[in-house]
């Protein structure tokens, strides 16, 4: 089984450990992992900003890079959602591309969804002594149906306790360029998310999208919270955190 890892541009730049954690989990599950070296961005920033042409160009490039793989897996509900649900819409008027896009979309998975549904991972390398709360990032939840999968995987981590926060499914306010264009509204949304996280008494908030992580961590620290860790679910499952790997 050849799995193409879509690292995502944010992970590539802002937190490479998530990419390595995803790699480790996929390899632990026995997958042969291919990391196309020329991959850059899935085109979502342009797509959500109304730049359809730019988005199509980057989408076509990504299809080229990943279509030979048996699966495309991304440690992001947002980027995998882009490929799975939005690429077909982008090429709706281009029959030859649409067939290739649809084929790729059909084998595209968010990481935890893939680990649970496809490779049915039994044991995970990570361990965590403490309580975590899980934030459901919007695209993962509503486009990719990711809800039970990360929780099922977290339950396999020795030492972990899950404490659900209130309004776990409410948007953290990131929204890509929204976070800069409408910074005040975005910050307020992040602030409410942070309050719910703190109220859950968890030692760490765990989630599956780096954009939301940067938003939440940025707001937590600005609020003066130095205590609550912000972890990607892959980092925790792979044991690629300060808490120690196996």
């Amino acid at each position: 089984m050849k799995v193409g890892l879509l690292v995502t541009c944010l992970v590539d730049m802002m937190r490479p450990s998530i990419g390595f954690a995803a790699l480790k989990l996929l390899e632990t599950a026995g997958c042969g992992v291919l990391v196309p070296a020329s991959q850059t961005c899935c085109g979502q920033p342009g797509y959500n900003s109304g730049d359809r042409e730019g988005a199509r160009r980057l989408a076509a490039k990504l299809v080229e890079e990943f279509e030979a793989c048996d699966y495309l897996v991304a440690p992001s509900g947002s980027c995998s959602g882009m490929v799975k649900t939005h690429y077909p819409e982008l090429f709706a008027d281009d029959p030859s591309m649409l067939a290739r896009v649809a084929a790729l979309a059909a084998k595209t998975y968010e990481l935890t969804d893939f680990l649970v549904k496809v490779v049915k991972l039994e044991a995970v390398p990570g361990r965590f002594a403490g309580t975590v709360t899980y934030h459901d990032s919007c695209s993962g939840l509503r486009e990719m149906g990711v809800k039970a999968q990360p929780r099922a995987l977290l339950a396999k981590v020795p030492g972990i306790k899950l404490s659900e926060m209130n309004e776990a499914e409410t948007c953290c306010g990131f929204g890509g360029t929204f976070s800069i264009k409408f910074g005040d509204i975005s910050s307020r949304m992040a602030d409410k998310k942070c309050q719910n996280i703190e109220d859950s008494q968890a030692d760490a908030v765990v989630l599956g999208d780096l954009g939301c992580m940067l938003n939440i961590e940025g707001r937590l620290r600005r609020r003066g919270n130095e205590r609550t860790k912000v972890l990607h679910v892959a980092e925790l499952l792979a044991g690629e955190t300060d808490e120690g790997a196996s």
């Binding site: 802002m14 976070s179 800069i180 264009k181 409408f182 910074g183 005040d184 975005s186 910050s187 307020r188 992040a190 602030d191 992580m213 940067l214 938003n215 961590e217 940025g218 707001r219 620290r221 600005r222 912000v230």
Partner: peptide, 10 residues
């Protein structure tokens, strides 16, 4: 500044 007015950037 839209970002950093209300948040840090890790």
């Amino acid at each position: 500044s839209g970002w950093t007015n209300g948040r840090d950037l890790p």
